[in-house]
Amino acid sequence: MWEHFHHQADIGVRGIGATMAEAFAEGAYALMAVICSPDKVKSVESVKIRCQAPELDLLFADWLNELIYEMDTRGMLFSRFEVEIVGDELTARAWGEPADADRHEFAVMVKAATYMELKAGHDNTGQYFVQCVVDV
């Protein structure tokens, strides 16, 4: 599950899942939903992503920033994510296709995932969550 949360100038993204890895994948989908309509993005090709950070919340910011980098340099959008987290390292595969203004209903490109409201943990129901505000 994913959701956006309120921030006056920008927007917050949150991913929730039964595992931390699932929360990271949902958080990535929430990022994509800021940029476009990810349900319109087909899983045509995939990109491998790896990142490392000393804390889980920082790892989430790094993960989103790596996705932003891949989108910016490959001209792609993503809609499906497979994430594995071992220790302080994340390995993932993101599926998507080249960005298409006619089909993907663009809104705004994200400049960066920020450390504002950056959190990783689990909620009252035992579900894992990750979140941060993204700068648009």
């Binding site: 000393p54 920082l58 910011a61 790094d62 920033n65 932003i68 980098y69 910016d72 340099t73 400049k111 960066a112 995932a113 920020t114 450390y115 700068d135």
Partner: peptide, 17 residues
């Protein structure tokens, strides 16, 4: 554009650390 955004991202992490 992307260059400035990435410099911001890179140094936010470097300076925090």
């Amino acid at each position: 554009r992307g260059l400035g955004h990435q410099i911001g991202t890179d140094f936010l992490k470097k300076m925090t650390t």
